[in-house]
């Protein structure tokens, strides 16, 4: 039973790496996934891949838009420590390998991403010693993203490059509420996370983001080996960006929503866990319809201690 709980915890927290600290153009929101009765610290390494097709309108609207494709690759070191029985801290240290191709021209933007720190507190929880078939847990908290990532000035235009740079140049704050309900080995998790963005030094402000998800999971145990398949839906919604927040220059060609169908699994053995997931956009309207999410997948390895 402990292994199953552990496994669920790992898989759930793995969802935290869905965080996309760079793709303002990708409606990248932040979520913590399912957070059941986890009780151990861990450190992990995760890889995340996202791709998009973009149509960049020409200055003259009568001309055909330019087409580009963006690839976001994130390698992230992350982990969790308990600071008390009810409070856990998470830290995320990403490194980005981003690429944009326009025709035969390829632009690479590599570098450290923005560091995030999260704190979650357990608000409701079925007692550990309860011999219950039904168990639930409500966790709420928040986080802070610091502008530590590689970031370039965009004072002389280059708004195009904002979404592809490894860092955002902004301090962002997040609120998160997360509920997990389990019946024996099966369960559902639902969560909502809201990211409050601030403006960068040049007054550009990404739109605030809302991420919501609903997932079902089932724990299969074979001796010490546990597999946790999961499937569900995830939605990312983003408000419009501001080209200049002080002057309220709203960029109405930014923001929008992407709805993903998600499927994945986590395998867990001893103190090691492996997590894989794939997300397929099933509905979207982003960047005024000019940005299309294509692929979103991630894989992670975790070590408990």
């Amino acid at each position: 039973m402990k292994q199953i709980i552990c496994c669920i915890a790992l898989w759930c927290v793995a969802a935290a790496a869905y965080a996309c600290d760079v793709c303002g153009g990708a409606a990248g929101g932040q979520g913590l996934g399912i957070l059941p009765m986890y009780y151990r610290n861990f450190a992990g390494l995760q890889y995340q891949y996202r791709s998009f097709n973009s149509l960049q309108e020409q200055v003259d609207e009568n001309q055909s838009p330019r087409q580009s494709r963006e690839y976001y690759n994130t390698v992230q070191v992350w982990g969790r420590v308990h600071v008390s029985k009810r409070v856990q801290l998470f830290a995320f240290l990403p490194y980005q390998f981003n690429r944009r191709s326009v025709g035969s021209t390829v632009y690479n933007y590599n570098g450290a991403g923005d560091v995030s720190v999260w704190a979650n507190a357990t608000v409701l929880k079925t007692e550990d010693d309860c011999d219950c078939n039904w168990r639930h847990m409500l966790v709420a908290g928040g986080g802070l993203k610091a502008p530590t990532g590689k970031y370039a000035s965009h004072a002389n235009d280059k708004a195009d490059i904002l979404n592809i740079m490894p860092g955002t140049g902004t301090w962002d704050f997040a609120l998160n509420a997360n509920y997990t309900l389990r019946y024996r080995k099966a369960g559902i998790n639902t969560e909502a996370s809201y990211t409050l963005t601030t403006a960068d030094a040049e007054s550009y402000k990404y739109g605030n983001k809302l991420t919501a998800a609903l997932r079902g999971f089932y724990a299969l145990q074979y001796g010490q080996f546990t597999i946790l398949p999961q499937a569900g839906l995830r939605s990312d919604y983003s408000l419009h960006d501001y080209d200049n927040y002080k002057r309220k220059w709203l960029n109405e060609q930014s923001g929008g929503y992407i709805l993903y169908a998600t499927a994945g699994a986590q395998a867990y053995y001893g103190r090691v866990g492996l997590q894989l997931s794939y997300n397929k956009p099933v509905a979207q309207h982003y960047g005024g319809g000019n940005v299309k999410a294509l692929q979103f997948a991630d894989a992670g390895l975790f070590f408990l201690f």
Partner: peptide, 13 residues
Amino acid sequence: SIIGVLSACQKKD
């Protein structure tokens, strides 16, 4: 309610 307020109409020039 908090989310609704935060997601409300955005001011613009």
